[in-house]
Design a protein around this nucleic acid. Structure first.
Lengths: 126, 126
DNA sequence: CCAAGTGTATTAGAGTACTGATACACGTAT
DNA sequence: ATACGTGTATCAGTACTCTAATACACTTGG
């Protein structure tokens, strides 16, 4: 359900935060949906359960998740299911900034960059 | 000369490492070129001089920079000036992977993604 | 020579991220 | 009631990142 890479340099909890935010914003996670359990995610990604739990707790503070004792965390009712495309685009701006900076410093052309992006896009098309 | 963002979550020394690598790979930094001094960069970005020094030291270990006592670090002679486009493209793969994952989770279309990328590209056109 | 410029070694400390072990409170199915 | 499923609090410890304050060795320009 989530893709967590402990080797990427990006803290695991932050990867999880961002991915949940995105999937709620896009409506792939709708209000009421139960999230994978802390222990399940931890086992699956060879990560400590508390790392997951803390990420979930932060998302609850944000109002994105709801906590029900003894039951799995669920997507909060107040979490707007479908955010406008414009607002969703805002969430990838930091990544775009990083990418464009890197491509410029490598003196790639915009054509090369777009070509590689399209290639990756197709490759992730399951 | 370099763009360092202490707030980005990516360690400063790593941002510097990557940017030097890219600019050497693209030939924007040629063998013999002197790099900005440790103290200059540190002042400019409100960062501790040792943070810069340590990044430089790592780049020397990599063979990308050369150290001359009492003089600025320079790009090493062995550092291949112009790496092939194919190899340069490899350096942005992790960023592309992150971006595509994010865009998919946000359920953006490839058209929207490419459009935003082009927009950022133009905006960074100095 | 001397002052100012290079990079660096050393040591100390703070803050964050993550691990690991343990224990607890609550809900649900049997 | 029992067993198992949730999430969580706590405490300790490790590793990494960055800051800070010194001091040193070297080169260059006056």
């Amino acid at each position: 359900m989530f893709i967590l890479n402990p080797q990427s340099g990006v803290p695991i909890y932050r990867q999880l935060l961002e991915q949940v935010r995105r999937m709620v914003a896009s409506g792939q996670l709708t209000p009421g949906t139960a999230l994978p359990s802390v222990r399940e995610l931890a086992l699956q990604h060879a990560v400590n359960p508390m790392t997951i739990s803390k990420a979930y707790a932060m998302l609850e503070t944000e109002g994105l998740l709801e906590r029900h004792r003894g039951k799995p965390m669920t997507v909060a009712g107040q979490a707007r299911a479908q955010v406008s495309a414009a607002k969703r685009v805002q969430q990838i701006e930091p990544l775009l900034d990083q990418l464009v900076l890197a491509a410029r410093q490598l003196q790639l052309t915009d054509a090369e960059l777009v070509k590689e992006l399209r290639k990756k896009w197709e490759a992730s098309d399951e």
